[in-house]
Design a binder for these strands. Structure first.
Length: 103
DNA sequence: CAGTTGACGGCCC
DNA sequence: GGGGCCGCCAACT
């Protein structure tokens, strides 16, 4: 169970129609300070089919400025397909942020 | 082995 | 309100 593995596990548990912030994923993975590591882990993304990295956004509810898995537009498209509403490129965190009971 | 960087977050100026 | 800096851990060079 590496740090990466825990992070991936958390990301994979993000329910459809919800999004999580990097910090939140890090907190769920075990440490809040892993925010950067989470970013790195998702960048590595060894299994994109099971790791919906597009559901992980910054605290602002915006996708990372270096999202390069197909383009920002593609990420927004995928999120909207999940039922997540985008407004001016940002998600309504109050409504769509993953409500984790374990945090 | 040591130094630097990195899909971030939070605080300070 | 906006911009910049520091800090955290792990991976990469």
């Amino acid at each position: 169970m590496n740090t990466f593995n825990m992070i991936y596990d958390v990301v994979k548990k993000i329910p459809k129609g919800k999004v999580a912030t990097y910090g939140q994923v890090a907190a769920l993975a075990g440490n809040r300070r892993w925010a950067r590591v989470v970013g790195y882990a998702l960048h590595a993304n060894p299994d994109p089919e099971n790791i919906p990295c597009y559901r992980v956004v910054t605290k602002d509810g915006k996708p990372s400025n270096a999202f390069v898995f197909g383009g920002i537009n593609e990420q927004i498209k995928l999120l909207e397909k999940d039922g997540i509403e985008f407004k001016d490129g940002v998600v309504d965190m109050e409504k769509y942020q993953w409500d984790t009971p374990m945090i």
